[in-house]
Design a protein around this nucleic acid. Structure first.
Lengths: 361, 361
DNA sequence: TCAGCAATGCAAATCGATTTGCATCGCGTA
DNA sequence: TACGCGATGCAAATCGATTTGCATTGCTGA
């Protein structure tokens, strides 16, 4: 049984298709209340629902949005961003096409062409890590960038405020009384790395704590990298050893936990730790649960969609919106030990110490 | 500058729109090679790409698929499933609408209506956990169920083969020489729980090992639940204590690690552990990396899409496909200790032992 | 009684493609 | 010369909605 068409409703109600259309779309005036009533009942009786494809052809607006992303599958953050965009779309009666390009430029090209052919009303170009992108040609002017910034302007975009997040993280440690605070950074060099470092320096400066380059260590962004970096820090002489560590991300913070536990250090009694990302299944499940800074993925997704649909008035056509990263307080920050505790090391020296002690660079 | 229409190409090539359409769609014969050439060049010159909306209206096929899911945002597995479905769609020239209902029945209803109005060629109804669903009315016959089974048939569906996965997991332990093998189960009662337990029993049976109800413990599906359950097991007398533990999921296995480490037990020397799910950032990052059973999300997503699009011939219209769960061998399984090691307990007894020792029920 | 106007509703054009049936042309053959 | 036929290409209908401009009806007021 085929779907009912508007002409079926017209026949059932004994009116023209024009009248049905006018009634269904609540166009003002022209049609008497009595007729309206009759049309509505007929529509319900035959189970009519307008064909969006036909409507899209005629009106030139499809109420669909294309969301192109480079990596949906491989990061646990993606979901929150999608959910935010999704919810905003639904709230406004839009449907979203999702395309994951896997970062492949050719697939990206094809995706843009396909979405354009499909007459989407807007596009969102999403990245899974805060980075700078060269937006491909062909995306419409109504494209919004999500978690990335354009190489040379011309687009509205939204990214996390990593700088302020770094400051907030370090302020947690400062507020707890720490003065020797390390930053375990990544050596992969993403934008967020630089920004969080700036935030770290700013928080130190505002607390009147001189920055010590020896406390800025790098490693790869895994638990292993964090652990290796932490071992370098914990091997420092007692009066140079940090009492608080801010980590580039939660996975590295998990590595710090491992290094600390292996030396019999208790968190937060002997060492305070703050992470970044508030990564599901990592941050909250640490023992003790990790204090960290959340990446506002849901809010960014929502923002991008609302701007793309034009329901959120953003004055500037060419501006990057910084989304606040809230601190999530859990149990990994406490006051510094009264005097630096002597960790009961299992080994006198780490002969296998990894070659990661890269000082500031 | 508006997009070029087919009539623009026709004008540029000096032919009719019929001819252009015939050429662009590679309809056989009728048009001379010379004309074909001319049309193609004209199309390229004006930058023509067909309008999918108009085409969809005329052909009644939109080359789009709707993917309705209950929880995209909250599980780290979703991405793989989406990626599989996505890739299969792209391989066949389809675009996918993604809708996350959050499990809300009303939103689900609206989603189905919206997708129907949008004339999707097929739908996929995806769940994030293997479960039984009452598929709402109105989904087309071409709907495929992903990671769930219908209450009363009528749909094609694909789910992980949790039973065989449970068997494979336990076989790993049996093959390493273990005879006292525990199963730390969940008490939430998902389908997978029962199936994996059946698989566990089957592996024991085929190895001629009698099942010991005391070795079937339950807990909640978190690291905390796994840890509590492991403590119960490790408190058993030496000759009853398991040497190998199969866990319902990787998070619980992570809890087993914590319990073992707190007692000074080394994995896999003193205790072997097998998880389930191969969860990103959990399984591989354990110390040592966890041997586990992978949920075949990507393959299931691809299967569902291919069946939905009709490119994979599945004879039975009403059948559930079981997708194999491969074992991922890492470093948490070894031979059992020569004789059961005396763990160097920190405490003589666990006065705070949690009330979780629910025997088989 | 009839012009004029408001109220109401409809016919037809339109969006941009696909596809059916028909028209034209040129050439070979009777 | 006239006819038939293959090759080629086009006009027009169609998909299902929206929307413009016009037609009809009934009522008011002169």
């Amino acid at each position: 049984m085929a779907r009912a068409r508007i002409s079926d409703v017209a026949a059932a109600a004994g009116v023209s298709v024009t009248t049905v259309s006018l009634v269904m779309n609540d166009v003002e005036s022209r049609i008497s209340d009595e007729t309206r009533q009759r049309v509505r009942e007929a529509a319900r009786a035959v189970g009519y629902a307008p064909n969006s494809v036909a409507r899209g052809l005629r009106t030139q607006r499809t109420r669909t949005v294309g969301l192109i992303s480079d990596q949906i599958a491989t990061t646990p953050f993606a979901g929150r961003m999608l959910a935010g965009a999704q919810d905003a779309a639904r709230d406004n009666g839009y449907l979203v096409y999702l395309i994951d390009t896997g970062g492949d430029a050719e697939i990206e090209r094809e995706a843009i062409d396909a979405l354009t052919a499909q007459q989407v009303d807007a596009m969102i170009y999403a990245c899974m890590w805060h980075r700078i992108v060269d937006v491909p040609q062909g995306v419409s002017a109504k494209t919004v960038l999500l978690d990335c910034r354009p190489v040379k302007g011309g687009y509205r975009s939204v990214v996390p405020d990593d700088r302020a997040g770094g400051t907030a993280a370090v302020r947690e440690l400062v507020a707890a009384g720490h003065r020797r605070i390390a930053y375990i950074d990544t050596d992969d060099g993403p934008i967020a790395s630089r920004l969080r470092h700036e935030g770290y320096l700013e928080a130190l400066a505002e607390a009147g704590i001189p920055a010590d380059p020896a406390l800025h260590i790098t490693g790869d962004t895994s638990a292993h990298g964090g652990r290796a970096a932490a071992e370098v820090l914990l091997d420092l002489p007692d009066d140079e050893r940090p009492t608080g560590i801010f980590c580039f991300n939660d996975r590295m913070a998990a590595g710090v936990y491992i290094a600390a536990h292996r030396r019999g250090l208790d968190i937060p009694r002997d060492l305070s730790v703050v992470g970044y990302d508030d990564q599901q299944l990592i941050a909250a499940e640490q023992d003790p649960p990790l204090t960290t800074v959340a990446l506002p993925h849901y809010a960014m997704g929502r923002w991008a969609m609302e701007v793309a649909l034009g329901v959120r008035a953003e004055g500037d056509e060419d501006a990057t919106h910084l989304m606040e990263c809230p601190v999530i307080r859990r149990d990994s920050v406490g006051p510094p030990p009264a005097q630096v505790a002597k960790p009961n090391r299992r080994r006198a020296s780490h002969t296998e110490r990894p070659p990661l002690a890269a000082p500031d660079r």
